[in-house]
């Protein structure tokens, strides 16, 4: 029922200069599911997402998205396959207005799907609708986070890599973020989420992958992870 695997990564290794950060991770993502990549600070979550997008030097024995090989593809070609990326530090274009930021992400949707438009996104993130002409540098962290997600949705992706969406933002906005992710899921967009905020990840994810020191420690349903206190405390703290 969940269809063919969307994103399939096997044995991923990544490097910063000569420092190795990932030591052979494997993970996959099915259409429309939300998977949380959890682990401590510095465990390699952000690097995993960057490596998938081709933003850090990495190797994998197998890396496909919708059946297309990702290896050696430049970042923009990976994005054009339908893989969206929302970076940890949001990377809003601060000199550009909200509407202009959305424009940078715009790409035509595949036939038969109702495309994301600024209007639809403003319904999802009402705050943004009230500040269409405002520049990125005059927005709060939470607003920038919403804009970053909205900008990526403008590309009508099949899956989004979402890096630490709840970090450093107010609890109310975290709540809105969770709703937005549920809305994306309802639209059939798969989400691979890196998260340190346990409560947030548990509330919205179908599955969890636990990363520790650049290696995968656990993959399974969120319920399994919640049940296994020893694993959780062993890898995530305490």
């Amino acid at each position: 029922m969940r269809g063919d695997v969307l994103l399939d990564i096997r044995n991923l290794r990544a490097f910063y200069g000569r420092a190795q950060v990932l030591f052979g991770l494997s993970l996959h993502l099915y259409p429309g599911e939300v998977v949380a990549l959890v682990g401590r600070n510095g465990a390699g979550k952000t690097t995993t997402l960057k490596a998938i997008m081709g933003l850090v030097s990495a190797t994998a024995t197998h890396a496909t998205f919708k059946g297309h090989s990702l290896s050696k593809l430049p970042t923009y070609r990976i994005a054009r396959l339908g893989l969206g990326y929302v970076p940890e530090d949001r990377r809003i274009f601060t000199d550009l207005t909200v509407e202009e930021n959305l424009e940078t992400g715009r790409r035509t949707a595949e036939a038969g799907r109702s495309p994301w438009t600024p209007e639809r996104l403003f319904r999802l993130f009402p705050n943004l609708g009230e500040m269409r002409g405002r520049r990125g540098n005059q927005m709060s962290g939470g607003e920038q986070q919403m804009l970053s997600i909205a900008r990526t949705l403008m590309g009508n992706p099949d899956a989004i890599l979402l890096d630490e969406p709840s970090e450093g933002i107010a609890p109310v906005i975290v709540q809105m973020m969770a709703e937005a992710i549920r809305a994306m899921k309802a639209e059939g967009v798969a989400v691979l989420l890196s998260e340190q905020n346990w409560a947030f990840a548990a509330g919205i994810s179908d599955r969890a992958c636990v990363i520790e020191r650049g290696e995968m420690r656990f993959q399974g349903s969120m319920a399994e992870l919640m049940a296994d206190k020893a694993l959780r405390e062993g890898t995530l703290g305490g």
């Binding site: 401590r40 609890p171 975290v174 709540q175 340190q196 905020n197 346990w198 409560a199 947030f200 548990a202 919640m226 206190k229 959780r232 405390e233 995530l236 703290g237 305490g238």
Partner: peptide, 24 residues
């Protein structure tokens, strides 16, 4: 530090920390 409840909630991760993150 390992035993400190505030630290566990704020940083180390603990099942008890699941609920309060949405409120104050």
């Amino acid at each position: 530090i390992r035993q400190d409840p505030q630290v566990r909630r704020a940083y180390l991760g603990d099942s008890h920390a699941l609920e309060p993150s949405q409120g104050t």
